[in-house]
Structure formats: C-alpha cells, structure tokens
Design a binder for these strands. Structure first.
Length: 431
RNA sequence: UCCGGUGUAGCUCAAUCGGCAGAGCGGGUGGCUGUUAACCACUAGGUUGUAGGUUCGAGUCCUACCACCGGAGCCA
C-alpha cells in the first residue's frame, strides 16, 4: 500500500505515489479531465483525474461528486507550474468514503449571517482556517511567554459568587438553591494566586451580559490574565509589552501563509518595536483636544476617541493614569495624584482599540475596604479578597489580554466574531 | 437600549414613476485533455420577512411586528 501522507508535507514526496485522505474542496472538469481541489486540514492540493485511468461509470460519478464529499486519492505527486501550490496529484485511484449531500457554502460570496448559521461547516473554508491558525499561535505564544518567565498556570473558576464590577453585566445561573454568576474575569483569583506562587496566569473564557452590538464585542470571549506579586505599574507595562512582542514575533515567523491569505499588510506588524509609547490620560486628552474632538475631561474614552489617539502612532500604545472614578474599585490610586488610578490600557494600532486593560492593585486593607463601599458593592462576598490584604499584602499588578481582539488586529479582520471558532453574541448562540 | 440601513430563487443581488418577478452563481442534463470562483448549450427552481391597510393594480406607498447588518453606550 502506498504511504499515507499529508498535503502540508507533499513536497517531500515529489515523484512518489501517495494516498491523501481528505475532502473535496472544489472541482472543475473539462472533457476527459477532472480537477479536484482536495483538502485534508493541513493544506490544499489539486488532484487530476484522467478519464482513461478509470471506468466510464466511475468517471461520471466523480464528475458529479458534490463538494465536501470525503475521499481518499492515491496517485503520483509531481511538480507542475499549472497547479496552485506547485504540486499536483496524478490520480490512479479514488475511494469515495462518503458522497456528500449538496453543500450549502459555494466558493462564491456569501453574507455574514448565512455563513455564521453555517459556522460548523464554514470552519472548513480557507479564511476561517487562516484566522483560527493565527488564534492558535497567539494563545501558544502567550503561554510560552509566561511559562518561560516562570509563571504558574492557575485556572480560575467559571462559576463565581459575585460581581467584580457590579451585577448588570453578569450572566446569572441557578446554583442549586442559590445564584451563581459566570465569571467576568479571573483577576481576583489570580491575586490570590500571586500571593501564593508569586507569578501566575490564567487563560479561559469570560462572560459579559452587555447588550453590546459592535465589532469589538462578544458575550463569551477569552482572556489571558497574568498577576505578579512585588510588581508595580511600570514593571506590569514591561511585561505586557514583552508579551505582545513575543506574540508578533511568533505569528510573523509561523503564520506568514495565513497572513498572506488574509491579505494582511504585514509591514504594519513588522515595524512594531520596543518600546511602545507610554502616555498618560492627560496627554491623551490633549491629543483629542488638538484633533478638535469634543471630549469632557474626566470621562473614559469611547471607541472613536481611542481611534483618534492610537492613529497618532504606528505601534500599540499604553495609556496610564485614568481618573480613578472611571476605573474599577481594585485599582490603586497614584500616590502622586490621588485622583488618578495606577492603571494601563494598551490600544492596538490601526483603530483596533483596547486589547489590554490592567494595572497595579490596591494593596492597603483600609483603602480597599473604603473603595468597595464607595462603589456600592457588598462587603461580604469580598471578605476572602480582603483577606489577601490582611495576611502579607504586597504591591502587585497584572493585566488581561483579550484574545479575540488581539487576533482580529493581527489578522486585520473587521470583526471579533471571526476570531473565535463559535462566536456568542447578543443575537447568536447557534451553532 | 438608542440611531441608521436591509429583508426578492439554495446563495449574492437586479426590478426605472405603483403596471408581465429577473440575472449570475449553485443544482440537473449534454459537450470539451489543463482547469484555478473555467467555458458553451439546455433545464428545474418564487407565499417578494410576517400581519394589516391604501389602490383598478403593491416587491415598490402607509402602519405594526420580526430578523439581520452597521454605529453608539459599556468593555477586553
């Protein structure tokens, strides 16, 4: 029997006879020839079927074979300028594993709603393939980065007893005779982890019941959240910057084919170098003022504001020291300016907006207690969190990176819904 | 939740002033030895989102509802 191989490694088999197992991606025929574009998950290759090598009836059956039928093709690999990818398979044997029904996704244009209804099938197409391979690399690079720095992976719970930042954006579930909420962030648990292990991170899905309908929002999205004990805001920013650079380096090295298929302008990623500009909220407000934007000092930036600010730069930028009033209760105030928080948002270039939010955490017990109260939050669910300040509190900091926004930026795609295999939005929970 | 837009064949879209519902792709049949989202010929395919209303006549105008798209707020 001919050795079985994959399309990705086909160039090693030039001249040899192999069997490829996959699916019929597309086909065209011309008289005594059928050109079958075969995919096997690792790549695409054209198989050429010549009528004289098969029986009349089987050749006619192959001519009618529907898209996405599963097939095994045996044949000789040969380099051919006329074939996309440089190699094609001269088929000597075709085994139809299953003849598919009429496939709904043709190689022509489709609308996004139709494609999302067919997401379980759309995953087979080349564009979702490319994006999800980049996603894989982004996640792999993040984990590699933290693992190499001696971080411990510490998984955070999905069911949580209370909100980090109010309850309006939480998904509520029945939890036996009680209520539980789907997590919005693993951060508070990572703070406990940092006090136990020094440097930890978590990676997992988080949930927001926001009725958001924009290209940057999902109700279920993935975050990677590191947290470090004995760490201040500047060190936190160094960590975030290093992580982004490592992600870019890995994707640019390993996913060039995917970025090319997505028609990404790679030069915009290649010019990104250390150090990323670090500006304060006040400086960002000045940029807005110079651009003639109407902006009320003290507010948080909206999406159009972020775009105006980030368009001034070609690399991601880090904006620090927002007014404490617009930030979460656990943020530490700047000792030099108590109205400001020691926080940082990283804004991706090209208008992709915020991909990282983080900062130094409030480590003083009394101050934290006051903040919980002044944010109108109940004390009791946070008793365990306050314990972290009762027993050996230290300065610490961390951040959260949104995986889908990062993937969307790197891929140059418009909407985060394509950066996750099965997106969950306000109006979609199927398939 | 608010603002704007779109709903017509399996898919992507046309249909002029309110006057015979169409095309391309996909499907089917036939042809062709080099196709890359092929080409040529023939062919099947419709409750025009739903419910009302105006009119001799509604895909087109009006009202309500539904779905989706884009944007805002909130955020990663």
């Amino acid at each position: 029997m001919a050795p079985r191989t994959t399309i990705a490694e086909i160039s090693r088999y030039d001249g040899q006879t192999v069997t490829l197992s996959g699916w019929l991606y597309n086909k065209t025929h011309k008289g005594k020839l059928i050109f079958m574009m075969l995919r096997d998950g690792t790549g695409f290759i054209q198989a050429v079927i010549f009528k004289d090598n098969f029986t009349e009836t089987f050749f006619e059956e192959l001519q009618r074979l529907p898209q996405e039928s599963s097939i095994k093709v045996t044949g000789q690999v040969r380099a051919d300028k006329r074939a996309r990818g440089g190699y094609e398979l001269q088929a000597s044997e075709v085994d139809v594993v299953q003849m598919a029904q009429e496939y709904p996704i043709s190689p022509k244009e489709h609308g996004i709603d139709f494609l999302m209804d067919q997401r379980h099938l759309w995953l087979r197409s080349s564009k979702p393939h490319a994006i999800l391979k980049v996603r894989h690399q982004v996640i792999a690079a993040c984990r590699e980065y933290f693992n190499n720095l001696g971080f411990l992976l510490l998984d955070a719970p999905i069911f949580t007893p209370a909100a980090c930042e109010g309850t309006t954006t939480l998904f509520e579930t029945d939890y036996f005779d009680d209520k539980a909420y789907l997590t919005q962030s693993g951060q508070l648990y990572m703070e406990a982890g940092a006090m136990a292990f020094g440097k930890v991170y978590c990676l997992g899905p988080t949930f927001r019941a926001e009725k958001s309908k924009t290209r940057r929002h999902l109700t279920e999205f993935w975050m990677i959240e590191p947290e470090v004990a004995y760490c201040d805001l500047d060190q936190d920013m160094d960590l975030a910057e290093g992580m982004i650079l490592h992600i870019l380096e890995q994707v640019l090295q390993k996913n060039r084919d995917e970025l090319e298929l997505l028609e990404r302008d790679i030069s915009k990623l290649e010019i990104i170098k250390r150090p990323f500009p670090r500006i304060t909220y006040d400086e960002a407000v000045q940029i807005l003022a110079k651009s003639g934007n109407e902006f009320v000092y003290g507010n948080d930036f909206g999406a159009p504001d972020e775009t105006v600010i980030s368009e001034k730069y070609t690399s991601p930028i880090m904006v620090t020291r927002y007014p404490a009033s617009v930030k979460a209760f656990y943020m530490k105030n700047d000792p030099d300016d108590p109205q400001k928080a020691l926080c940082v948002d990283m804004l991706a270039p090209e208008g992709y907006g915020e991909i990282i939010g983080g900062g130094q955490r409030e480590d003083d017990y009394d101050t934290l207690l006051q903040k919980i109260k002044s944010h109108g939050l109940p004390i009791e669910p946070f008793e365990w969190y306050l314990d972290l300040r009762r027993y050996g509190s230290v300065p610490h900091a961390g951040f959260g990176l949104g995986i889908e926004r990062t993937v969307a930026w790197i891929c140059g795609i418009k909407h985060v819904r394509e950066a996750i295999p099965f997106p969950r939005t306000m109006s979609r929970i199927y398939p």
